[in-house]
Each structure stands twice: as structure tokens, then as C-alpha cells.
Design a protein around this nucleic acid. Structure first.
Length: 362
DNA sequence: GTATGCTTTCGGC
DNA sequence: TTACGGCCGAAAGCATAC
């Protein structure tokens, strides 16, 4: 039996701001991504627990959060992405030392396989998790929530069970009991859409979900997803904790100063995106074979158009003609104006040798 | 029918 | 009443080859 931990930093961006400025404690704190449109246009990236009491949530328009909090002395702050990345690396370096295998799942989440480190003795796992939590707090001043179980699925659900600053153990034999009263949306991968379908079928808890046959689930959701839901409802998961390699794609997207269907204007707004993406590629010594233009139309739907080449490029700046073609092709088949525009490169390869040495000297 | 590879969309954080 | 970012990986969808 494996010993798996899931570590989740609590309300990460907002907690960092609170840590760095203690006068924020006790107030609703909302960290926002503002676009270039002015007038406070943007969305909420993270909200502390006081904000959450007033129904403020990540993903919500900033304007909505302002209305919900107007009587409660809130603090709205712009995101400091690079700084949060740096804090994340410091925290991850601590977490890493508590497992044999470490997998960073996002900027504020990680999995550990600690089976060998604890000699396969599950009874040592709770103490291990508490020590990890205390160590992170002592060294960084940040709290996290930890889930401990014998697979990634249960460890992740467990981490979400007691927050913030919680530790939840789901020992072998306890999964059925732990799962049966949970709402089905607590299963990772079961989002709004799937929840709606299952609720319409009359299922609300994971316990109830266990009554559906695998055939029925595969019928409704397809082979792969259906089997996943069937197993997840039983706490069954054998995904290994595995270190993540470098990102498989790099992208930049921005909100246009005004909605538009003018290809020349859209391309001009892409200039900063091109510059930043090229800096990224140069810094990491990457080349790519596939270029994608990402469109978000005024109805907030995301679309994309891509082109693949049979040779590698190390910069997008020489591909403006291709970008323009993709924009025109999109406009030809879509009636909506464009609100946001971006670029993505994939099929990445690390440049090696002399070329890389030259680039990293900058 | 299966395997493979590419483009597009979905959804979590 | 509406309001709305910027990333990423995974899954879905589709075409092709055998």
C-alpha cells in the first residue's frame, strides 16, 4: 500500500499578501487580474476566507466582488505573478523533502509519495503530514492543508476536506465511509457540467453514485470518463506520483483595449504578446513547431486556430504573415467581435549545445 | 478495428 | 441585471494508416 500526500497552500495569492502586510488581517482581501481596459475591468484570482464569507470567489468579475464587499472595508490588490512564483518555489523546495517522489501539480499544490520514507508504515503518515505543515509554516509563514491516503485521488479529496490549515487522513479501509456522504462535485474532474447531468439522473452524493453501473456511466459520459467516475466513486486510483517535466506549451493572451474585427488592429495588439513570448522562448532556449492563435469572442467563448511547420522556429516574430492568415481565417468563419487575443506555441524542443550557451549568457 | 498524431475545446487554479 | 484573466494540461474530436 502506498502512502500519498496532497499539499494545498491555503488561498495562496491572498495569503502571501496577508503575510507580507499584517495590517490586512481581519479584512476581506481580494487579489485581482486587471485587464488593460481601465475602469477596474478584471476578475478575482484569489480571495481570503473573510471575502469568501460574503460569497466572493476566484473567477468572479472584480465589479461583482466590489458590490458584495462594499460595506466591509475590503482591500483589492493587483496580482504579482512573478513574486508568487518565487514564493511557490521556496515552499515547494520544503515540501519536496517530505517524499521519495514529488509532483508539483500547480503553483500551490503538490503530491508526494512517501511510501519508502515511512517504510510503508501508514501509521506514521499523520505525524509526517503534521511535521510537513509545521515546517512550511515555520520557514515561510504560510499555512497549507494536507490530505493523506493511499492514492492521489483520495489524498486530493482529503486535502480539500478540512481547510484552511487542516490535515485529513483517509486510511486503508476508510475510503467507503469517507466518500459516501460527499457531494459528487468533490470528485476531481467532476465539474459543473457533469454534476448537472448526474443530479438530473437523481444522484447527489458519492454514495449514491456507487449505485450506477460502469456500463451506464460509459454510455452517458464515454468510455474513458465513465470508467474514471466509476472508479473514483469507490476511491480507486492507481495513478503514480511522477515528477513533472518542463511545460509542454507556452502562451500569452491579452484583452484588447476595444472589441474588434479589424485584423490589422488585432495584429498590432499582438505585438507585445509576440515580444514577451519571444523573450520567454529565448530565455528557456526553446524552439517550437506549432503556433496557435487563441481568440476569446465577446460572448467569452474561447476559440483557436493553429498551424504546424515541418521545421523548428525559435521566435514567433518572423511568423506575422501566418498569424494574420489565422486571424483572417477565424474572422471568415465567426461572426462575433474579438475581446481577447493571444498566442501559444507547442511541440517544444530544448535547443542544446552552443546555441543554448549563447542564449543563456544573456 | 486499433494505433497514431494532429487540432480544438474544456476546465482547474 | 450585467459585469469577466491568464495561464496550463487533459480530453475530445477528427483524419489517416494499416
Amino acid at each position: 500500500m502506498r502512502i500519498i500526500l496532497h499539499v494545498d497552500l491555503d488561498y495562496f495569492y491572498a495569503q502571501i499578501e496577508e503575510r507580507d502586510n499584517p495590517s490586512l488581517k481581519g479584512k476581506p482581501v481580494v487579489v485581482c487580474v486587471y485587464s488593460d481596459r481601465g475602469g477596474g475591468s478584471g476578475v478575482v484570482a484569489a480571495a481570503n476566507y473573510i471575502s469568501r464569507r460574503y460569497n466572493v470567489k476566484a473567477g468572479m468579475p472584480v465589479k461583482t466582488a466590489e458590490k458584495l464587499l462594499k460595506d466591509f472595508n475590503p482591500v483589492f490588490l493587483p496580482v504579482r505573478g512573478e513574486y508568487y512564483e518565487k514564493v511557490s518555489s521556496e515552499v515547494m523546495d520544503i515540501i519536496r523533502s517530505y517524499g521519495d517522489v514529488f509532483e508539483q501539480a500547480s503553483i500551490d499544490e503538490a503530491y508526494l509519495d512517501a511510501t519508502r520514507m515511512l517504510n510503508g508504515d501508514f501509521s506514521q503518515a499523520p505525524g509526517h503530514a503534521v511535521r510537513l505543515q509545521a515546517d512550511v509554516y515555520l520557514k515561510t509563514g504560510l499555512t497549507c492543508s494536507v490530505g493523506v491516503s493511499y492514492n492521489k485521488l483520495l489524498a486530493k479529496i482529503a486535502a480539500g476536506y478540512r481547510k484552511p490549515n487542516g490535515v485529513t487522513i483517509v486510511a486503508p479501509g476508510e475510503a467507503e465511509n469517507f466518500l459516501k456522504t460527499l457531494k459528487i462535485s468533490k470528485i476531481p474532474g467532476i465539474g459543473v457540467k457533469t454534476t448537472r447531468i448526474l443530479e438530473d439522473m437523481g444522484y447527489r452524493t458519492v454514495g449514491e453514485l456507487q449505485a450506477i453501473s460502469v456500463e451506464r456511466l460509459m454510455d452517458v459520459f464515454g468510455r474513458k470518463t465513465g470508467l474514471y467516475i466509476y472508479n473514483a466513486a469507490r476511491g480507486v486510483d492507481d495513478e503514480p506520483v511522477k515528477p513533472r517535466g518542463p511545460a509542454a506549451q507556452h502562451g500569452r493572451i491579452k484583452t484588447l483595449r476595444e472589441d474588434s474585427r479589424n485584423p490589422a488592429y488585432i495584429l498590432s495588439e499582438l505585438e507585445t504578446v509576440i515580444k514577451e513570448l519571444d523573450q520567454d522562448l529565448a530565455f528557456e532556449a526553446l524552439s517550437f513547431k506549432t503556433l496557435t492563435v487563441v481568440f476569446v469572442t465577446v460572448d467569452l467563448k474561447t476559440h483557436s486556430k493553429s498551424i504546424s511547420f515541418d521545421r523548428r522556429f525559435n521566435s514567433v516574430s518572423s511568423l506575422r504573415k501566418e498569424i494574420l492568415n489565422l486571424i483572417n481565417s477565424f474572422l471568415g468563419e465567426n461572426p462575433y467581435s474579438i475581446r481577447r487575443i493571444g498566442l501559444r506555441v507547442s511541440n517544444l524542443l530544448k535547443e542544446s549545445g552552443v546555441r543554448q550557451l549563447k542564449l543563456t549568457l544573456f
